[in-house]
Write a protein that binds this DNA or RNA. Structure first.
Lengths: 193, 193
DNA sequence: AAAAAATATCGACAAATGTCTACGCTGTAT
DNA sequence: ATACAGCGTAGACATTTGTCGATATTTTTT
């Protein structure tokens, strides 16, 4: 079964028929990108949101000193893109690149809106995703402002064990808002327990 | 003109008639709460989202040591509530209380869904708000993990000058994820500029 | 196989932040 | 008028985190 088909029906309450899925899929563009290649670069407008069929990606930004700050991590069945740029057609401040060779299904803003209005299951999916994302974002903010780095890491491992497997520690450190050295120290403490 | 009427028409593309607004308003419950009173307490289920007609409120959580961590600030024309609890009917981990005497318009999950399905302008409002909230949350996460406390504060003042007027520094410090002492130090630096 | 790049850890030191106590100021309640 | 609580700042000290250089190991490239 196609990963996207499975994914949509996992969210929607009214199941999508094979035919309807064909209609949905016809609005996506298949794309393979290699490790280190960009899906989006700072300054570009995010024209497509990408559903990750296979692979691992990250979204990050660069500070004045050229340091990378990882904002999001993605693996299979996640969506990669910069929402603000996608919705408002403004140049993005983020970079999105592939951490592993990846296979994506791209959809434009226009087709996204078309699918939402013409396919109720797809619309339902998007609404639920939005809700989920809002809740997840709230949790991440809460974690960032109220937890110690040690607890943030433990929380992260518990909630995203698949990320721990697929991204190196310095990427995870950046995602947690600390340096790789600090994460190394934190891990030493945590492992002792 | 009623603040909520003005607010909805500010977001919706198709304007709401006076009659339709009456229909919308009939699903809201008016409530006044005094400074320090709770709209929501940890452990409760968030049964209502509150549109703030007048006043100032905050959402925060308590850590093991009893310390408060401010997660959100609200003033007029903002919505106060815990989305996760509201949507999933789970006990909230947050507290929401009034920082100033406030007037709210409360709406239940049920009525919210009813309004969304029966009033297109209201639905449009909610969708746009969700989008806005998602984007704002992303920015706040980015700010938390990639900026120094000094820049976070400058960013905050620039983006939310009305908050600076209405909440004391120790509340703002908590919102930014630092102690009041640190914010005091940061401000001393910033003012020198 | 050899060379290069990426990764993780460590120690030493510096910088940032938290913690605690104290002080003065303000507005409010009594 | 007095007492009190809330607020912002300050200094001293402890803790955490960042920075930098070094190293060992692994992985990737040539």
């Amino acid at each position: 079964m196609h990963p996207l088909f499975h994914y949509i029906n996992n969210y929607a309450t009214t199941l999508l028929s094979k035919d309807d899925f064909g209609f949905v899929l016809s609005h996506f563009i298949s794309k393979k990108i290699r490790r280190r290649q960009y899906l989006l670069q700072e300054g570009e407008i995010c024209k497509y949101f990408g559903f990750i069929v296979k692979g691992a990606m990250r979204k990050y930004l660069l500070d004045e000193k050229g340091g990378e700050h990882v904002v999001d991590l993605y693996v299979e069945n996640w969506w990669a893109g910069d929402r603000e740029s996608f919705v408002r057609f403004t140049p993005s401040t983020y970079n999105i690149d592939a951490w592993e060779d990846s296979e994506l299904l791209l959809v434009s803003r226009e087709d996204m809106l078309k699918l939402r209005s013409e396919c109720p299951s797809f619309n339902e999916l998007v609404l639920k995703l939005d809700e989920y994302n809002n809740i997840a974002a709230q949790k991440r903010i809460t974690s960032a402002i109220s937890l110690t780095s040690e607890k943030r890491y433990e929380d992260f491992v518990e909630r995203h064990p698949y990320f721990v497997q697929r991204f190196p520690q310095h990427i995870i450190a950046s995602y947690l808002g600390v340096t790789k050295d600090t994460l190394s120290r934190v891990r030493k403490k945590v492992i002792k327990k």
